[in-house]
Design a protein around this nucleic acid. Structure first.
Length: 587
RNA sequence: GCCCUCGUAGCUCAGGGGAUAGAGCACCGGCCUCCUAAGCCGGGUGUCGGAGGUUCGAAUCCUCCCGAGGGCGCCA
C-alpha cells in the first residue's frame, strides 16, 4: 500500500470518528515542504455542510491522528490546513515493506485487455520526424499500462489500403508496363521477387503523388486502381503485397532503431473481408444511408448543440475509406482479440475523425457501452522557428537521420568535454548512441502529450539540466556505486530511518511512486513519468552529495544506504523503461 | 462561420480547486586529498493573455473577448 493511501486511511478514519465524511480525509504531498511532508485540506470543505469552524475540525482530526505512532507531527495552518509529518522510523519501515512486497508499491489491478494503436506508418514511406511522437508516446503508454498489470498489445496499424496504394500502382505501371501485374489476362503465378526495392519505392511514392496532383487523368486512374485493389484484382494485389512486404521490413528496422516494438503488425487492409458484410448490415438496419452517391452514417445526436458531420462509409464509386476501415477494425479487435479498451495515439488533428468513428461504433452496436474507445492525441514536433520540423533544404527529415544527428552531436559533446575519455572507442560510440536516444525521447516525452513543442537537439543533448543525459548519468552513478559496494563486500541491507535531510527527501520521493504511476496511466501522460524520473534523480544526486555511502562507518547504516540506492535504481530503472529509455552500464 | 487545442519568468516548458505559482536554460558566485563534477550549493525574476462569474479558496471550473495553431463529406 502506498504511503499516501496509508495516511489517507488514517485521516479519513479520524474524519469519520469526528462525525464527518471519510472523503474529506485525502492526504496529498505537501505544497510547502518546509512546513510539513504531507497535508490534508479536508477540513475546509467539510466546515460549511457541517456548520462548523474549519480550524475546529482540523484540531479535532489532529487530536485523533496524533495518537498514531507513525505520525511525528500534525498541526493546523492558516484557515484549516492539516500539516502532517511522519516519523523517520515509519518512513523506513514503509519503504522496507514496499521492497519486500515488490511492484514498487503499486496496487494490484483488475487486468483489462487493452490495445494501443500507435505508429501508423505508411507503406512506401520512410519514417520521418512526424512519426516520432506517436511512436514513443504510444510505446510509453503501452509499457505503463502493462506495468500496472493490464494485458496490453501494441498495434502498428500500417497505412496500406488507401489512395496512395493506387497511386503507386499506376506509377509503377507507367515505369514498368511490361510487368505481369497489369495484364488482366495473366493467370499467374506472379514473381516471388519484388519488382522494386524499398529505396526505389520511397522515391516512387512522392513522384506518384506529385503526378496525381499535376494530372487529373492520372489521379483518376489511381482512384480506379485503388478501388480495383480493394475489390481484389489479382495482379494489383500481388504487386501491392510486394510493396507491403518491402515496406514492413524497412519500417521494422526504423522502429527497432528507436526501441519501439509492436506486438501486432496489422494494417488497414487486414479487415478488408469484414467490410462488405458490415456495410450490408449497416444499410439493412438503417444506420447507413445514401447521400450524393456515397453511403454515410449520421452521428449527430439531439443533444449536440453543434454540427457533427456524418461519417462517410463509402465513396460514390463504392470504395471504402479510412473511417470504414477503422470501424471494421474496432469490430475485429473486439471479436477476434477480445479487446475491451482501445487507445489511439494518433495526431490530435484527427480528433474529429475519431469522434465520428467512435460515435458510429456506438450507434451501430459495433462497440457496446462496456468498450472504451479513446483518442489519446499527440501534438506535433516543430523546428526552432516554431514551424513543422524540416531539413535544411526544406524537405521532411527522416527519423533515421534525426537519430543519427542525435548520436553524432552527443559524441561531439563528449569529445569536447573529454568525457568517457579512457573508454574504448566502440563503447564511446555506443554510449553516444544511447545518450542521443535518451535525449530525443526525454526531450519529447517531458512535454505534455497534446502540445506541440519545439525540437531543439542542442538543448535536448545538453549535459546540463533537465535532459535525457542527466537521467542516464544518475542511473550510471547508482550502478557504479552498487558495483563498488559489491566489490568491497557490502550487500544491500534493511532501510534505516533517515538522519540527513537529503536522505529523508529521497525516501519521500520514492514513496510517491505509486501515485505518479496511477496518475500518468489515468491521463495517458508519460510527461508525468518523465518529470518524476527527473525529480527522483535530482533527489538521489542530493543524497549522493550529502551522504557518502561507502565510507560510512556505521556498518548498519552503510548497508541500509546501499539498500536505498539499490531500491532507487530499481525505481528509476522502471521509470526509464516506461519511457523507453535505455541506460549504459557506465558513461 | 462552427468546433478543438493552446496563451504561465528573457528562452523552452511543467503544474491534480488549496497556503508564498515551479523546473531547466541563460547570467553571477561557490564546491573535487572522498562512491563518475554529464554532479551539488547559493543568488531574481511573473498583470499565470484580458474581463466577468462559481467557490471559504481559481493558473486550474464556467461565460465572453483578444491572440496563435489546428480541424470541418467522399485524402489519411
Amino acid at each position: 500500500m502506498s504511503l499516501l493511501t496509508e495516511l489517507t486511511d488514517l485521516v479519513s478514519q479520524a474524519f469519520v470518528d469526528a462525525g464527518l465524511d471519510a472523503s474529506y480525509g485525502e492526504v496529498v504531498v505537501s505544497q510547502r515542504p518546509e512546513l510539513a511532508q504531507f497535508q490534508c485540506n479536508g477540513a475546509l470543505p467539510a466546515a460549511k455542510p457541517a456548520g462548523r469552524n474549519p480550524r475546529g475540525i482540523a484540531q479535532d482530526v489532529i487530536d485523533r491522528i496524533e495518537q498514531d505512532n507513525r505520525i511525528e507531527a500534525a498541526s493546523i495552518a492558516g484557515p484549516g490546513f492539516i500539516n502532517i509529518t511522519v516519523t523517520d522510523t515509519s518512513l523506513a519501515t514503509h519503504l522496507q515493506s514496499t521492497i519486500a512486497v515488490g511492484r514498487l508499491g503499486l496496487p494490484e489491478v483488475e487486468p483489462r485487455s487493452i490495445l494501443v494503436d500507435y505508429g501508423g506508418p505508411n507503406v512506401a514511406k520512410p519514417l520521418h520526424v512526424g512519426h516520432l511522437r506517436p511512436a514513443i508516446i504510444g510505446e510509453s503508454i503501452k509499457r505503463l499500462l502493462r506495468f500496472q498489470g493490464h494485458d496490453v498489445v501494441g498495434d502498428v496499424h500500417l497505412g496500406d489500403w488507401g489512395t496512395p496504394m493506387g497511386q503507386l500502382i499506376v506509377e509503377v505501371e507507367a515505369r514498368m508496363p511490361e510487368l505481369p501485374y497489369f495484364d488482366e489476362a495473366f493467370t499467374g503465378p506472379y514473381p516471388q521477387e519484388s519488382p522494386v526495392t524499398i529505396d526505389e519505392l520511397e522515391e516512387i511514392y512522392p513522384a506518384a503523388s506529385q503526378r496525381c496532383r499535376d494530372n487529373p487523368d492520372v489521379a483518376e486512374r489511381a482512384r480506379k486502381a485503388t478501388l480495383e485493389l480493394q475489390n481484389g484484382r489479382p495482379g494489383y494485389r500481388a504487386l501491392w503485397q510486394h510493396f507491403r512486404n518491402v515496406s514492413i521490413e524497412a519500417i521494422k528496422e526504423n522502429y527497432d532503431e528507436l526501441g519501439v516494438e509492436f506486438d501486432l503488425w496489422k494494417g488497414e487492409s487486414d479487415i478488408n473481408d469484414l467490410l462488405a458484410p458490415l456495410i450490408e448490415r449497416l444499410v439493412a438496419q438503417g444506420y447507413a444511408e445514401e447521400s450524393d452517391g456515397s453511403l454515410i452514417i449520421r452521428v449527430q445526436t439531439d443533444d449536440d448543440n453543434r454540427d457533427v458531420p456524418p461519417l462517410i462509409l463509402t465513396k460514390s464509386d463504392g470504395a471504402t475509406l479510412y473511417a470504414t476501415w477503422d470501424l471494421a477494425t474496432i469490430q475485429d479487435r473486439i471479436e477476434s482479440l477480445g479487446i475491451v479498451e482501445m487507445i489511439y495515439v494518433v495526431d490530435v488533428r484527427q480528433s474529429l475523425h475519431f469522434e465520428q468513428v467512435f460515435r458510429a461504433a456506438r450507434i451501430t452496436g459495433i462497440a457496446g457501452p462496456e468498450i472504451v474507445l479513446e483518442h489519446a492525441g499527440n501534438g506535433t514536433v516543430n523546428g526552432p522557428n516554431g514551424k513543422p520540423f524540416q531539413t535544411r533544404t526544406g524537405g521532411v527529415k527522416t527519423l533515421r537521420s534525426m537519430l543519427e544527428d542525435a548520436a553524432a552531436l552527443s559524441l561531439s559533446k563528449m569529445d569536447a568535454r573529454d568525457l568517457a575519455a579512457g573508454y574504448p572507442q566502440e563503447e564511446r560510440l555506443s554510449i553516444a548512441h544511447l545518450v542521443g536516444l535518451a535525449a530525443v525521447k526525454f526531450g519529447d516525452l517531458s512535454n505534455h502529450r497534446e502540445s506541440n513543442y519545439i525540437f531543439d537537439m542542442d538543448r535536448f543533448t545538453s549535459f546540463d539540466g533537465k535532459t535525457g543525459p542527466y537521467l542516464l548519468y544518475g542511473t550510471v552513478r547508482m550502478s557504479s556505486l552498487l558495483r563498488n559496494a559489491k566489490e568491497i563486500g557490502v550487500s544491500p541491507g534493511e532501510i534505516v530511518p533517515p538522519t540527513h535531510e537529503a536522505e529523508r527527501a529521497l525516501l519521500l520521493e520514492l514513496a510517491r511512486f505509486p501515485e505518479v504511476i496511477e496518475r500518468a496511466a489515468e491521463l495517458r501522460a508519460p510527461n508525468h513519468i518523465a518529470e518524476f524520473a527527473y525529480e527522483l534523480v535530482a533527489a538521489y544526486n542530493r543524497f549522493y552529495e550529502a551522504c557518502h555511502v561507502l565510507t560510512e562507518e556505521d556498518t548498519g547504516r552503510r548497508a541500509g544506504w546501499v539498500g536505498l540506492v539499490a531500491h532507487t535504481r530499481d525505481a528509476l530503472g522502471r521509470l526509464l523503461d516506461i519511457l523507453g529509455i535505455e541506460a549504459p552500464e557506465r558513461m
